[in-house]
Design a protein around this nucleic acid. Structure first.
Lengths: 209, 209
DNA sequence: ATCCTACAGTTACAAATGTTACACAAGCAC
DNA sequence: GTGCTTGTGTAACATTTGTAACTGTAGGAT
């Protein structure tokens, strides 16, 4: 594990911190599509993502979803600690976008590690990044029309996948964006006519990035 | 200033920290309606709110607004540090909801104060609170219809004002919620027919809290 | 009093999004 | 091959939200 940590977080953390983490961290592998966190499960760990990507959603009481953002290698989700305890109304869901690996640090260590300057930097940067991404979600919901939001969704997904050919169905998109399949099909067709994407069965090709 | 700090943050911070803050903090008074932060002004201070309330908005490139949340006495806005530097797209606006007073702490002190356990607690709690509130904004934009969102807006405003009689015009609401005056008038009328509010000129009375 | 301005109510219409229903094609199981 | 399931295209319609235009009214300025 120390080696894994070193190669993924070596540029961020000093050797001593890497060592401390390796002593208390738990290695976790998840397969693509697997759910990491569901419905108020008491997450008492802070995850460090060392491989793959994690998709984070907001859920409402009727199990409707709204995608929030992706976590990538080198990211963590400081929110984890927060949102599963404080909130009763809605919940968070986290799903592996592809096969991924994480190192879980017990929540109580988080404060202890604040004695390391690099850890403080990391935690605050992480909070700030998550914050910015949430604000982007607000922006797109508050100010953008569905066609723009959909294109942004495809764009972001292409970046995370490092691939302009996305394997995704209209229905999957509809669920993640809290709308209906028919609506997504309609807007996708519009984007195709505009020359921004090309539609295939089970696949969408992004022509403009 | 030490006395002000003690009465507002005495239950949170130890005496030594209060003293440190009083040495570097600047006292700031703002009148109701005054804008504290506009369009990427380089805020290099962390504000502690000691009196009043602050309304925080997201702005887009076309100056459209979306209200995010209120800050109250005892709150801070950890986001301040973040959003004005990292982001180029959209911006944040902060307006005093009524006459308010804050103590500004230079940003560089924020990390220094982390040596105080109570400060660490405070900063993390603050991040988490802001996070929860942003998630609530996402919830309302993603899952709620305008009538629900509007009622939530009125509800929240009544709580902050400790008053069920709100002095606000339809147009003001429309701007803060990024819609038009006609739409707000229409939905308000609907809420009135449902018995949830009562409309007066320049005033809205909340009947259900 | 008259004039002016801001605010609110209402109608008619347009645009965006959501819903229902149905047709058809790809691909898999048999 | 047939049958079945899943994904996609599309039309018709409903609902929600946005826009334009016009009315009246309260209250202040003169």
């Amino acid at each position: 594990m120390l080696e894994t940590l070193r190669s993924n977080f070596g540029h961020l953390f000093e050797e001593e911190l890497l060592l401390e983490i390796s002593k208390v961290g738990k290695h976790l592998k998840v397969n693509s599509g697997e759910t990491l966190m569901e419905l108020g499960s008491k997450v008492r760990n802070m995850p460090l993502l060392v491989k793959g990507a994690i998709k984070v959603f907001r859920l409402d009481d009727d199990y409707r979803e709204q995608i929030l953002y992706f976590l990538e290698r080198g990211d963590t989700c400081a929110m984890t600690l927060n949102c599963c305890v404080t909130d009763s109304q809605s919940e968070i869901k986290a799903v592996a976008e592809f096969d991924s690996e994480l190192i879980l640090i017990p929540a109580e260590k988080m404060e202890e590690f604040l004695k390391f300057k690099s850890w403080r930097r990391f935690v605050f940067d992480s909070y700030n990044n998550r914050f910015s991404e949430l604000l982007e979600v607000v922006d797109s919901l508050a100010f953008m029309k569905l066609d723009e939001r959909l294109f942004k969704y495809l764009h972001d997904k292409a970046l995370i996948n490092s691939n302009t050919l996305l394997e995704v169905t209209h229905n999957e998109i509809a669920i993640e964006m809290n709308t209906s399949r028919v609506v997504i099909s309609r807007v996708l067709k519009k984007l195709e006519l505009e020359g921004k994407i090309k539609l295939h069965r089970n696949k969408i090709e992004i022509l403009e990035l």
